[in-house]
Design a protein around this nucleic acid. Structure first.
Length: 422
RNA sequence: GUGGGCGUAGCUCAGCUGGUAGAGCACUCGGUUGUGGUCCGAGAUGUCGCGGGUUCGAGCCCCGUCGUUCACCCCA
């Protein structure tokens, strides 16, 4: 009987050994600054009531209108695999009244997200993001801190070839005023059907069109930055001053567009230069109306999401990954069943005292086991055989230079701890 | 969703204008009793992504399909 092989679903990225250790490292380093800044973990469901996203992210967005994994569960509820993190965090904050205590609420998350897009370099149907949210305080300083935390994460990875794009989308009044003039301007352009449809949904999108002729046409378009209310403008100026003080360099990009509808005020994006078309390694911003839209009180918040997959690609491109393959301190080669029993017991004791210990399993020849030991990169090897078991003394062999020394099994722990600490 | 490239051993790939598969690396075993790295020898492994078609004959041609990759779109 021969069964057909089963493949992973289209577009999912799996991290297997040996690359998985690099992935794990990247994810840990990226989000480490959040915990150091007083943010606390939120472990959330990967699926939510579909309304969390249709209302939170916005129906006009591509993410919601054509990229969501939505299905009906057995109770007839509409469920969606989360395509982003912020809306779910808001739902949980509201539902559990986290916003009824001291503000800001500061939380971080890490996990898988799902979008049914055509896979491409750096774009997967299941991808990993880490992110933070700071909810309930409107203070330009917190905007700057949030950005600094993201920047610190990328610096932790040793990344250099990226830039921070920043702009302000202002408050509701600013955007309304700008929109009128922008629509008027777009009306003067001769657009193809698809582009016109996009403009109708969100006129800001046209700023993001990569075609040179569109870039050219949009050069004369009115910029939201010039329509900011006095308050929004002052606020944004203060954010930039803080960033300057923190020595975080940025590029003012008044044409930046984000794909999620909830952004207001300070909005930013980290773009890496070595990644091809999918160059955004992280992004975020302030959201004034999101919480209210999801049925909570009217609090503003700010947060970011960083792409772990892309950050890993960036680190690979910049060769900034550490070479830290796991290698054990000691490998025990047991010969025979009795020796295996002793090996299992000894290994357990050694590991308990912090010595990374492996055992050579299977019925291999000693020579074969030694070859395996060599390839594994282990620092020391001992053989447990008849004579060792009866005498209680083994030859501790240092693989680096083949040097051996006679050690009692009972003293392996002390000898290894001593020699490894040097 | 649209368009282009690719899919041959675990990996990287070769396979001329169609004649029923190969290399290197990796892997396993051995080179006299229980000690690695080099060297030598031996060995195992493929329904040539899948399905259909053309042909006396297809890894090579055609169609479809799945996957992958790159770009558009969008975004992390």
């Amino acid at each position: 009987m021969k069964f057909e092989k089963i493949q992973a679903p289209k577009g999912v990225r799996e991290y297997l050994p040996p690359e998985s250790s690099a992935f794990d490292w990247v994810r840990t380093q990226l989000i480490a600054p959040a915990a150091a800044s007083g943010y606390q973990l939120m472990e959330l469901p990967v699926f939510e009531d579909t309304n969390v996203f249709t209302r939170g992210v916005g129906e006009s967005t591509d993410v919601v209108s054509k990229e969501m994994y939505t299905f009906e569960d057995r109770g007839g509820r509409s469920i969606t695999l989360r395509p982003e993190g912020t809306a779910g965090v808001m739902r949980a904050v509201i539902e559990n009244n986290l916003d009824r205590g001291q503000l800001p609420v500061k939380v971080w998350y890490s996990g898988q997200f799902f979008r049914a897009e055509r896979p491409q370099a750096g774009r997967y149907r299941q991808f990993y993001q880490v992110g933070i949210e700071a909810i309930g305080v409107e203070d330009p300083a917190i905007d700057a801190e949030v950005i600094a935390i993201a920047d610190r994460g990328f610096k932790n990875l040793g990344l250099k070839n990226y830039r921070l794009d920043i702009t302000s989308l202002g408050d509701a009044a600013s955007r309304a005023a700008h929109r009128v003039d922008l629509m008027k301007f777009i009306g003067t352009l001769d657009l193809d059907e698809a582009t016109a449809a996009r403009a109708a949904l969100n006129p800001l999108r046209l700023f993001d069109d990569k075609r040179p002729e569109m870039q050219e046409a949009m050069k004369a378009a009115p910029l939201l930055m010039d329509y900011l209310s006095a308050e929004s403008s002052a606020n944004f100026t203060q954010v930039l001053k803080y960033l300057d003080a923190l020595k975080i360099s940025y590029v003012l990009n008044p044409r930046m567009v984000r794909g999620l509808d909830y952004y207001t005020g300070t909005t930013f994006e980290f773009v890496h230069s070595d990644l091809g078309a999918q160059a955004g390694i992280g992004g975020g911003g302030r959201y004034d109306g999101l919480m209210e839209t999801l049925g909570g009180q009217s609090l503003s918040g700010i947060g970011f999401g960083l792409g772990v997959d892309r950050a890993l690609l960036a680190a690979v491109a910049e060769k900034s990954l550490p070479q830290d393959q796991f290698t054990s301190d000691l490998l025990i080669i047991p010969l025979g069943d009795d020796a295996m029993t002793t090996a299992l017991i000894t290994a357990q004791e050694l590991r308990a005292s912090g010595i990374k210990t492996e055992i050579a399993f299977g019925d291999r020849s000693l020579k074969g086991a030694m070859k395996g030991a060599d390839k594994s990169g282990t620092q020391y090897v001992v053989v447990f055989g008849e004579s060792e078991l009866s005498s209680g003394v083994v030859n501790l062999k240092r693989m680096r230079d083949g040097d051996t020394s006679s050690v009692k099994i009972a003293q392996l722990k002390d000898v290894l701890r001593e020699t490894l600490s040097r």
